[in-house]
């Protein structure tokens, strides 16, 4: 089967700017103006230009009567690169669900790309990259098949994909450094390759806003840097990127804007302003220390947890402290703490 290029028939760029990535750590080489979309792949409603990418006004949401987010007002401009941080259960994923029409808000207004978001109806122009941990990696799909599924909404209702669709997927895979892996089973990919594959799937859909749920979770440091460089490239091409993460130092070092979340927005701004001990304690409910190292902000856990060295069980021996002999059975029970009432 030939995929001979005919430029006049090439599908349009999936994003506002043509993506010209040459490899994992490539930089942008040029940005072509967006090609007009054919009617078949045009979103049902074109986003309103000039409107913010994300607009939340006094939003409250929750499940089964339990409030998860409240008094949420947030604006993210087009072309911004924003990291959402907060403890587990703070509502980070729920915020992404709100933006993608998968969570119902019972107060306020949610707008994405200038259009109101309604529950159960995904807004156009949004690409989504899920957590790697929730995926069944034994699912019998190849890399190419996963990427092609990204534009199912605009694909013909037949079990196969057209040459044009395949060519576009191959181009994206090549630009994301996955050329030659099209027919590989997804379980054979490394963590970084899996992230790239999902990015390709998100980009195959014409998207202006890219949402990523914990993209740095479960990947090694090299992969994390790799993913970040790639997101940086996409951001410089004009894509609005919003990601959630637990990795405070990652966002502090690389992202221009951080939103701290714990059921409400506790801080919002550039890392140097947002990552203060007060704001972090407000967000995480625990003291944290903020260090400044050569212009970079580094957050460290202020809690001192002393771990006792494990006893040496090698060769069946356990080395005990030299404690005075106790009466038989005395070491079995809990020892009284200083200040405890001796008679209690």
């Amino acid at each position: 089967m030939s995929y001979a290029a005919n430029d006049s028939q090439l599908p349009p760029s999936p994003c506002p700017g043509e993506i010209l990535l040459t490899g994992p750590s490539s930089s942008v080489t040029s940005a072509a103006p967006p090609a007009p979309l054919p009617a078949s792949s045009r979103p049902e409603q074109d986003p309103v230009p000039g409107e913010p990418a994300v607009g939340l006004r006094d939003v409250a949401t929750g499940y089964d009567g339990v409030s998860v987010l409240h008094d949420l007002s947030l604006e993210i401009g087009r072309g911004e690169f924003v990291g959402i941080v907060g403890p587990s259960g703070s509502g980070k994923t729920t915020l992404l669900r709100l933006l993608t029409g998968r969570a119902e808000h019972h107060r306020g207004e949610v707008e994405v790309l200038g259009r109101k978001v309604r529950h159960g109806r995904a807004p156009d122009g949004v690409g989504y990259v899920p957590q790697l941990e929730i995926i069944d990696w034994d699912f019998p799909l190849t890399v190419e098949q996963v990427v092609l599924l990204g534009d199912t909404q605009h694909s013909r209702p037949v079990p196969w994909f057209s040459r044009a669709e395949k060519r576009r997927a191959h181009e994206l895979l090549e630009r994301l450094g996955l050329a030659g892996l099209e027919r590989r089973r997804i379980r054979e990919l490394s963590g970084g390759q899996r992230q790239r594959m999902f990015l390709a799937r998100a980009l195959l859909r014409r998207c202006e806003l890219l949402l990523l749920d914990e993209p740095t979770s479960g990947v090694d440091l090299a992969t994390r840097g790799d993913v970040l460089r790639l997101l940086g490239d996409l951001h410089h091409l004009g894509l609005t990127v919003v990601l959630t993460t637990h990795d405070l130092n990652f966002v502090a070092a690389h992202l221009p804007r951080i939103v701290c979340l714990n059921q409400e927005i506790t801080a919002d701004g550039v890392p140097a302003e947002v990552l203060t001990p007060e704001a972090l304690e407000r967000t995480y409910g625990a003291p944290m220390r903020v260090l400044h190292d050569r212009g970079r902000v580094v957050v460290v856990d202020d809690e001192q947890i002393e771990l006792h060295a494990a006893p040496d069980h090698r060769a069946g021996r356990v080395e005990h402290d030299h404690t005075p002999d106790l009466p038989l059975g005395a070491e079995a029970g809990p020892q009284p703490l200083p200040g405890d009432d001796a008679e209690a």
Binding site: R102, P157, V158, R205
Partner: peptide, 20 residues
């Protein structure tokens, strides 16, 4: 007629919903 949608919704229902 629903092959692609069935596969997408089976593999990754969250993203399938976001992708329309």
């Amino acid at each position: 007629t629903l092959y692609k949608r069935l596969v997408f919704a089976t593999f990754d229902p969250e993203v399938a919903q976001v992708h329309g």
